[in-house]
Every structure is written in C-alpha cells, then in structure tokens.
Design a protein around this nucleic acid. Sequence first.
DNA 1: ATAGAATTGTAAAAAAATTTCAAGAGAGTG
DNA 2: CACTCTCTTGAAATTTTTTTACAATTCTAT
Lengths: 157, 157
Amino acid sequence: MQKNFSANTLEYETLLEQFKKILKKNALKFTLQREMILKALYDSDGHLTPEALHRLIQERHPDIKVGIATVYRTLSLLEDSDIVTSLSFGAQGKKYELGTKEHHDHMICTECGEITEFVDEEIEKRQEKIAQEHGFLMKDHSMQIYGLCQNCQKNNQ
Amino acid sequence: MQKNFSANTLEYETLLEQFKKILKKNALKFTLQREMILKALYDSDGHLTPEALHRLIQERHPDIKVGIATVYRTLSLLEDSDIVTSLSFGAQGKKYELGTKEHHDHMICTECGEITEFVDEEIEKRQEKIAQEHGFLMKDHSMQIYGLCQNCQKNNQ
DNA sequence: ATAGAATTGTAAAAAAATTTCAAGAGAGTG
DNA sequence: CACTCTCTTGAAATTTTTTTACAATTCTAT
C-alpha cells in the first residue's frame, strides 16, 4: 500500500521507543498486542475505524488473537498519550490516526467520505499570527475543508 | 438562550424556506417535528449530539413528544440536504451543526473553554486555492485554534 | 373533506463501545 | 532463572448509540 504523503516524522523504531517510555512511566506493560496495533497504525495511511484496524491486524497475524476490546483499549491509551488522534467527519464513524505525523489538515469529501491530507505553510503561519493578535497562546489547531472530491463532482452531474 | 455570535448567514425564515423547498422537491413532508429540530439547531450554538438535541427539544416543548429516532432520521435528512454537517474531535461523540453559517473559525481555550470567533480573509482565500489545487469543490470549511486565552495564561503562571 | 403517501413514536434489533472477570503474560527482584 | 506482583488479555456480558419495523397518525394535494 502507498504510504500517505504526509510522511511520518518518526521512524517506527523511534515511535516505538516513545510508546515504551510512556508505558514505563505509567507502570504499564509493553505487550505484543499493543505493538501490533501501533505497527498497523504506522503502516496504514491512518484514518482507520477500530473495526477496520481490528480486521487489518487479524489479516496480518491470523495466528495471534487480538480481541476487539483490546483494540479499543489500546486506541484510548494511545489517544491519551497523544500518540494517536481521533476524528470523524460526515457519515462514517470515528477514525484514528497517528498523531505524530507532521502536522496536517484535512480535506473531506462530504459525498464519499474520502479524506485527503494537506499542509500549507502560509496557513500555518497565518494561524500563529491570528492567535498572537488575540493574545492567545496557540497549542494546537485543526482545519477542515469540506466539499466534493473530483470523482463525486463528476458523479453528481 | 443566547444566540451564537457566529451569526447565521440566513435568517431563520429563509433557512426554513430552503428546507421546505428541499422537502417539496423530494416529495417529503414538512412536519412539526422537523421544524422543531431545525429551529433547535438554529438557536443553539451548534455542536450538539443527537442525544443533546433531543433533550433540548424535550425541554423546550415538554408538551410535544419527539422520539429519538425522529431526531436521528431528521439529522440524516438535514445532512443529506447539506443543511447540517456533522463532525467530531477527540473523545466526544459525533456532533451536528448547521452548515449554513458563513464562517466556522474558532479559537478555543483548553483551560476555561472560552470560545472566540474570528475570520481571516487571507486564510479564507488560501483555503479556496488549496481546494482548487486538489481538484476539490469546496463547500465549507472549519478551523480551530486550541490554546490558552489571555486570562488562563496569567492564572497558570 | 378525502385519499394516498410519508412520518411518527414505540419497541425491537443491530451496531458500536465499554466493562467484568478469570486466566495469562510482562517486568522487577533476588 | 524462578518467583511474585500487577497489568493485560480475550470472551462474554453489558451498556450505549444508531437503525429498523410497523401500526397509527399527520401532511399534502386534490
């Protein structure tokens, strides 16, 4: 599968180390399941529902059982640790993606749900400036553009 | 209840007409429930879960029964008609809001929850450009800046 | 007013997410 | 390595959220 263009900033090994560190710090354990889930998220293009992630892992490791509950549990854990973020647009359910990618924004097709990522330096800078103007200390931001992707524009005509 | 500052572009009456037109066009009926749901969305500051919306309507009209199923049904209808959009970030579930507001830009203080709204022409234009570059037909957008407002910056020192 | 079709609330069902619990596995200690 | 303590797991049960079925009701166009 094609890796998303918004390349992960971190090598997998680094990410794994980060995860392990957080686990240790909180007296939690590093398990095979947790690693498999992290790896699957890393390798995919993100935007996976818990169900889809579970399915993906089962396909990759038919020999090892991973319960759906563990997927949910691990996703919350990863979200609490700021390693993944969740988002949901339009009709489909909540999706998860690695939060360690280089920052990016989303363009969402309201028809088919396709999500495209993009980064625009100009907007990034401008946001910082707006925050400053309002005496606001910016910690994070998110932006979404809604509309119709090329395909759905055609199909709707 | 206080009206949101991000003023709706449309007067309620206009919005209602638009809704009625869509209904008629699709041989659907205009009902009291549908109107109540649209009105509640219009008056609120948006970002309501179906449950919350249902509760709100029940509070406003204790005399009239509106089933939760009808709320769900109407929300999908409104979403299909591009009158509302749904989105969800972080831990909480899916939320719905009117899709007819002119701008959706918020600056949110993660400490006290204060929401400041802003519009920035440069960003607006830039967004349009990005959409075009991706062959995307932009219908709407939203942007959030998270951080600390002036007050909370002080209090946190 | 009437008829025909869509809509509603209720309750049941399905889907999604969370919790319980006994068995199993990781990590630190010796 | 063995031991123990605690966390984690899968499975199943439970809860929560969303959708569906259906008979009664309401709307819209004559």
